[in-house]
Design a protein around this nucleic acid. Structure first.
Length: 440
RNA sequence: GGAGGUGUGGCCGAGUGGUCGAAGGCAGUGGUCUUGAAAACCACCGACCGAAAGGUCCGAGGGUUCGAAUCCCUCCGCCUCCGCCA
């Protein structure tokens, strides 16, 4: 979340960012937070004074008893009891004020980075560069659905039997290709780009999702477990970002330990609420898909550079796979709730004659760190205590596995119905780099 | 699922309802000593809120009390045994 102090001190700046995000309707929330912060400060001061009085008097009572001065002690007790009543009412109001303020704070999206272009929609995103050439076909290119059916490796009828729409069954070479991509992505990340691989739970508690910003606003996008798990509401993760970024919540990391770089393969579960009718066919938009996610935890001084590095890591993967893609910088109206700056990598899909998102590389600044109490202690000069500061977090897909598989099938398709895969996957596919129909 | 135990500062580990934010040890930091290092010795050494005074934090949340790390309740984590299971 945004630093509560910043909201209180410079509400106009916050409102300006909300306007850029096309959300001026949130302005009243800012004003409310300012009021609540003022009230909170007053209550805190009064509470602190009363507690001090209680502590002082309680000590006196103890001593009076030791000296056998019971009557004097009883008199003080009455005073303390009176104070306690006032403390109780202050505490009640304080709890109310703080929880209301925090609820509101959690609803505010992140501040935007200066270089985020102002715009209303996807159409205003800035295309930064285009890599590779969309392949030319001397036949009408088919979609991965047709290709997969002809090869007998994508089976949407089977998945429909199991769980209905927006699921897929992968067979034979498709299943192997999915697994190959996972391993390829993880190997590059861990062996070349310095990431530590982690495997995490795929079910997390509510507060974990609040930490990364999916909750409280987007509960409808998530699959929620029925009933509680270990004492809390629990959800299927929509991305590895959630468990991985939260790995160090409630910690204070030493600056010299930063940056932390994690790579995680997980399935991702998304309800896809509100996307009815969009991309219903095929593997583009699924309730369950696989993704390798790259996560950074670093300092405010290094996060901008880290963002570029991370972007480069994701791009490397597309380049090795020889998939044509472009990079865009999301505008203020299209960028997600928690992000401060975000690049999308979009891969070329011949069947759609369009670039489609395959990776989203975001810098969150301290937004997530504030929410999850993820801090670091800056390197300090001798004898000078350095206060802990919120760390900066980043993440990027590296890459979405299902969509990569789709892109490979569609870009690698040939007139005879076979598909040619890039060289780099050789070791992962047992050297079989051409997928052929069963009869061929 | 059944039974029992346990949860204190970076780590280990004392702790009685009252002056405990918490003994002691280790680690760490600064210093004395030394040519240097080690050893020894001395000092410092948690976090949060606050301009400050001061306040809060002994797994979490409630309760009892003038006062709770210490008593009571609920929850969570960890450990051991049994059962079940990949």
């Amino acid at each position: 979340m945004i630093d509560p102090r910043l909201v209180a001190d410079d509400p106009d700046r916050v409102k300006d960012h909300l306007s850029r995000r096309q959300q001026p309707d949130l302005h009243p929330i800012v004003d409310e937070i300012v009021d609540l912060s003022t009230r909170r400060a007053a209550l805190l001061t009064e509470q602190s004074e009363l507690r001090n009085q209680r502590n002082v008097l309680s000590k006196q009572i103890g001593e009076l008893y030791k000296q056998g001065l019971r009557d004097e002690a009883e008199g003080l007790k009455a005073t303390v009891q009176q104070g306690n009543e006032r403390i109780s009412s202050i505490e009640a109001e304080l709890a109310q004020v703080v929880s209301t303020r925090d609820d509101l704070l959690l609803q505010l999206p992140n501040l935007l980075d200066d270089d985020v272009p102002t715009g209303a929609s996807e159409a205003d995103n800035q295309i930064l560069r285009v890599w590779g050439e969309p392949p030319r076909f001397d036949f009408a290119p088919q979609s991965h659905v047709e290709i997969g059916a002809r090869l007998g490796i994508l089976d949407f009828e089977a998945s429909a039997k199991l769980t209905g729409a927006r699921f897929a069954v992968l067979r034979a070479q498709a299943a192997r290709l999915e697994r190959a991509l996972i391993n390829f992505f993880l190997d590059v990340a861990t062996q070349e780009h310095g990431y530590t691989e982690v495997m995490t739970p795929y079910i997390v508690h509510r507060r974990i999702l609040e930490g990364t910003g999916q909750l409280p606003k987007f509960e409808g996008d998530l699959f929620k477990l029925h009933g509680e798990l270990n004492g809390s509401d629990a959800f299927l993760i929509p991305t590895a970002e959630v468990p991985v970024t939260n790995l160090h919540r409630d910690e204070i990391l030493e600056e010299e330990a930063l940056p932390l770089q994690y790579a995680a393969f997980t399935p991702c579960f998304r309800a896809e609420a509100g996307s009815a009718g969009r991309d219903v066919r095929g593997m583009i938009r699924q309730h369950q898909f696989h993704k390798v996610e790259l996560v950074w935890i670093t300092t405010p001084e290094h996060s901008a550079q880290a963002h570029q590095t991370l972007l480069g890591h994701a791009e490397t993967l597309l380049q090795r796979l020889a998939l044509p893609y472009r990079v865009s910088l999301l505008c203020s109206g299209d960028i997600s709730f928690a992000a401060q700056r975000c690049y999308d990598l979009e891969v070329w899909l011949p069947s759609q004659n369009a670039y489609r998102e395959i990776s989203s590389v975001s810098c969150f600044g301290e937004f997530q760190a504030q929410r999850m109490a993820l801090r670091y202690r800056p390197d300090q000069e001798a004898n000078r205590k350095a206060k802990p500061r919120p760390a900066h977090t980043l993440n990027g897909s590296g890459l979405a596995v299902g969509r990569t598989l789709v892109a490979l099938l569609e870009n690698g398709q040939r007139a005879d119905g076979s598909v040619e895969l890039p060289e780099v996957l050789g070791p992962y596919m047992g050297g079989e780099l051409v997928l052929r129909p069963p009869s061929a």
